[in-house]
Nucleic acid binder design. Structure first.
Lengths: 199, 199
DNA sequence: ATATAACCGGAGCAGTGCTCCGCATACAAT
DNA sequence: ATTGTATGCGGAGCACTGCTCCGGTTATAT
């Protein structure tokens, strides 16, 4: 049973119009989400992409799936940034710098923080993997800082992630608070430093 | 122009059915909001109260108005608690104790934190007044703690409110995080303490 | 008993997420 | 070039949301 040609089980490549629509959806979705946040209307995205709603839903059956494609790469890049910072900076600097970077990113995509938190909780989410990977990478930075005695040992990566996302949430609530984002981040980070006579 | 009777401009008391519905709405709304959070469907509330949607909207033209009646009293009580703590405890204890109380309250009403933050920003909201009053009262506690040198002087009441609401937000995101709420509150509070050689 | 102001309740509008399926079409085989 | 069909398209439709508007009901004062 061996046909000469490569006709094993090629499921046939997607049609050109499908590929075109796929790309167009991502293009428009990026713009709309940057404008209106992760809660943007999918109908609106379809309309602005000049395609039918059904088409959008076939390409991305759930909102998460769309966000995954939209954000997955960014998350991976943030994880890579963490790894880079790990070798190039002393532990404490690496951690604070990454957190600042993440906060800046969260400022662009409104609603991202909620999505991330929900995703980390929901294992069936398609965004789960990339979020978890990112958290684990940051967990290494945290571990380094703790080993160096620069961060309290009773702080988990989950804690840290929750806090930095909460700061992102604050910034989303009001422009005036967004301006104080760095200040608040500083306050929180000070809370993570070990004090004399504490674990 | 002086009629003997008291017919000056009495706008006439509300009808008994109106009073009954008003009370019933509040009763049901409390239950539903406690169950489903502040984003509960108003249609659902009307349905469960056994009244028409129009009736609900006439009694409370906006969601905020309903929440105001539902939460205003609680807010006032929280403000009163703050005043009580101010005289009964040393500055730092008073502040931390109040914050813990607020966090506990926020845990009951899901979505409350978002409402509060939005309300503080929106002066036209009917909840604005009570929220602002509460924040100002807490601001006094904060001022005392700062004067006693127990809290950094560059922390504003707005900062503090944002942070404690953010902690409430975290707890809403996942049950597992709700369990660590007090721990996270501790972390944040440590960040507020002044360090040597800092303002 | 009656007049009427106050009140009730739901139909209706515009929006949302999401499903389903008849029809058009890109592509392969002839 | 023609034809067959798998594949993809797009919108009608369902169930929900917040909110408005108004014809019919009813409590209350006369």
């Amino acid at each position: 049973m061996g046909t000469d040609h490569v006709t094993e089980k090629q499921p046939r490549a997607p049609r050109t119009d499908a590929r075109r629509n796929h790309a167009r959806i991502l293009e428009v979705a990026h713009a709309v989400v940057a404008e209106q946040g992760t809660q943007a209307s999918l109908r609106d995205i379809a309309r602005r992409a000049g395609i039918g709603l059904g088409t959008l839903y076939r390409h991305f059956p759930t909102r998460d799936e769309l966000l995954e494609t939209l954000l997955g790469e960014r998350f991976d890049r943030l994880a890579a940034t963490a790894t880079a910072l790990e070798t190039a900076h002393p532990p404490a600097d690496a951690l604070t710098e990454w957190l600042a970077e993440y906060a800046a990113f969260a400022a662009v995509y409104r609603g991202l923080t909620s999505s991330v938190m929900a995703t980390l909780e929901d294992e069936t989410s398609s965004l789960h993997a990339s979020c978890l990977a990112m958290r684990q990478t940051v967990g290494r930075l945290l571990g380094n800082a703790q080993q160096a005695g620069l961060v309290r040992s009773d702080v988990t990566a989950t804690d840290l992630f929750a806090l930095v996302n909460a700061l992102g949430w604050i910034a989303e609530q009001a422009p005036s608070l967004a301006a104080r984002r760095d200040h608040l981040l500083g306050l929180v980070l000070d809370g993570l430093r070990p004090a004399a006579g504490r674990p």
